[in-house]
Design a protein around this nucleic acid. Structure first.
Lengths: 208, 208
DNA sequence: CTTTGCATTAACAAAATTGTTAAACACGAT
DNA sequence: ATCGTGTTTAACAATTTTGTTAATGCAAAG
């Protein structure tokens, strides 16, 4: 059972740490608070992860991978028409973030707090983004020539999509108290927002 | 000159503190680091502001006011047509944030870190937002009836505009390294982004 | 049953960070 | 000149937070 127990305790700490780091960031997080939330002594936390730094890196690695995946999964899609691929991609991306609403804010804050640290990560992402971009841009150009949509820079379109989808969640706690009934029912609001984001982008790219 | 000197030192500390708090947040900021950046001993900082907390509040108050203003100023506008008012508002809002690019992230993080604290602030903002909203929604409804634009919920439109404008700056450090030449020239990119945001919203509200 | 190896605890140590104080200082007003 | 007021400094105190250690437990393998 020692193997089982260890798994559980380590897992408990990781889960508590994830929650703490995602909401409070590295600086705001306290190892004692994490240990308490996990129901272990704080010496236990250091026993498994040595330092706060190392514990944090475990979380960060996971989360960055997740963030990159969410972007890829949404647009590295099969062989529908480009317009449908974009429409579907927006929805997928939105849903992905809805499942991890704290993720974007965490990633952005981390990168701003310690940019140096993520150089390796960038080279990986850069390659992925470049290939998606080239692919998407080519399809957009072709579709534009056929009059199926307007000509547009794929990266600009991409940024617009990310803006609309991500901001909804990043700013939710800020907007919720000042938007009244519109946001009273979270699920209803998110559903409406999802549709609105798709609609907004579709209007933008639809052939005139 | 004692009066002059005091102003300057206090001001030096405030300026350094603003920079530190905006980039690192309350938890990441160090009073010693602020004092050093301001070129004063850290005892000096405590002499003028007593605690880190109080120094922080001075900054936060300013910044929240600024944030609220930016939203108001952009859309509480004169008597052009509603479509033109929206078009102009997007640009104004974008420019305002371009002048204070760290502001939105700071405000959002602060509110998430300590929601309780901003209850009073909310009641003030709530009133302002409500009146702008009612006003805008009425004009939109009228314009929609006249066929000048599509029918749309003003708050949804509002969120879309904020998303597009704010995200550009919040995520800049994250996107810059993975977007290649598109973002190489910051000014050129921002100008393009400003136009794109206006274009995107105009497409969304233009009468079909 | 004892050895071995990891798990656990409590108490402690070290470092970093915030906050204080007492003494020196500058300088204008009386 | 000196008194008073607010400024400045250096040294120190307090607290918080991270990290360590030595002793103990516990369970499986020999």
């Amino acid at each position: 059972m020692s193997e089982q127990e260890k798994q559980t305790k380590e897992q408990l700490i990781l889960t508590a740490a994830e929650q703490e780091f995602l909401t409070k960031g590295y600086d705001g997080a306290r190892t004692t608070s994490i240990a308490k939330a996990a129901g272990v002594t704080h010496a236990m936390l250091h026993y498994y992860f040595r330092t706060k730094e190392q514990l944090f890196e475990r979380i960060v690695d996971d989360k960055f991978r997740l963030m990159a995946q969410s972007i890829l999964a949404a647009f590295g899609n099969p062989n529908q028409s480009i317009v449908e691929r974009i429409r579907g991609g927006i929805g997928l991306h939105f849903d992905y973030i809805a499942d991890n609403p704290q993720l974007p804010r965490f990633v952005i804050n981390e990168i701003i707090a310690r940019p140096e640290r993520y150089d390796i990560l960038y080279s990986r992402m850069r390659g992925i983004v470049d290939s998606i971009y080239a692919n998407l841009q080519r399809d957009i150009d072709l579709a534009a020539e056929r009059g199926e949509m307007v000509q547009i820079d794929a990266r600009m379109l991409f940024i617009s999509i990310m803006s609309l989808n991500i901001f909804t969640f990043v700013a939710y706690p800020f907007m919720e108290p000042i938007m009244g009934e519109l946001m009273a029912d979270r699920n209803a609001f998110l559903q409406a927002r999802r549709a609105e984001n798709i609609n907004t982008i579709m209007c933008r790219i639809k052939a005139k």
